[in-house]
């Protein structure tokens, strides 16, 4: 057991050493196209009919040109509905980032962009004290908004994005008459959604094509 822990620690240190060796400086290329970034994110969900919630997830980016980047993400958001129901969202999707200004990479700190995209959207609602009463649905959604990278080093950035996501599917609603709580599905698509504010941490790990 002891030797296994030591071995795992050794492997972890080796991995970290490898990533540190890459450091935060990058070779000079004519184009920024081809950079792949990897990172984690926290999301605050507001103005949802369920209430506000916090989410955690991750993403990777593939930059297509100096002005266009793509963001591929997955989020898990949990929302408390009036202390009676848990509403869970899973978003798996992608967005296109268009940089408003040219040449705003590091050493310039602020790199603003507009963002729009699509995602697959899973929602499950569960009555807290009676987990047997639950309903879920898969759907599709589109999102658009604005954001900015804050380039801390050549490889590292923190990004703040604010976007509104509209669900293109039948929503699940909580029906509470004071004595019983039930989950029902809307018969029509209501185009409801939520405002998602995301803080993400991103690290450029590789350049897929070198130009």
């Amino acid at each position: 057991m002891k030797s296994k822990i030591l071995f795992l620690l050794f492997v972890a240190l080796l991995c970290i050493q490898g990533s540190l060796r890459g450091q935060d400086t990058i070779p000079k290329y004519k184009s920024h196209a081809g950079w792949v970034s990897l990172g984690g994110r926290s999301t605050l969900s507001l103005f949802d009919s369920d209430g506000k919630g916090i989410g955690t997830g991750g993403q990777f980016r593939v930059q297509l040109s100096n002005r266009v980047n793509t963001d591929w993400f997955a989020d898990y958001i949990s929302i408390n509905v009036n202390d009676k129901v848990r509403s869970e969202y899973i978003h798996i999707g992608w967005s296109v980032l268009y940089y408003v200004f040219n040449n705003r990479q590091h050493p310039k700190i602020v790199q603003p962009y507009i963002v729009a995209g699509h995602c697959f959207d899973y929602n499950k609602k569960t009555v807290l004290l009676q987990p047997g009463i639950n309903k879920d649905r898969w759907g599709s959604a589109v999102q658009a908004g604005i954001g900015s990278h804050f380039n801390l080093t050549e490889r590292f950035d923190i990004s703040l994005t604010c976007q509104y996501m509209i669900h293109l599917t039948n929503e699940l609603e909580v029906e509470d008459d004071g004595t019983t709580v039930d989950i029902v599905e809307h018969k029509n698509s209501s185009l409801e959604g939520h405002l998602l504010t995301t803080v993400s941490l991103n690290y450029k790990i590789a350049k897929l094509w070198k130009k």
Binding site: I16, L20, Q23, L152, T153, Y203
Partner: peptide, 12 residues
């Protein structure tokens, strides 16, 4: 915790 410094200012 386990922390690695990428430079003097930034760590993961």
């Amino acid at each position: 915790n386990l922390e690695g410094f990428l430079n003097k200012k930034i760590s993961v």
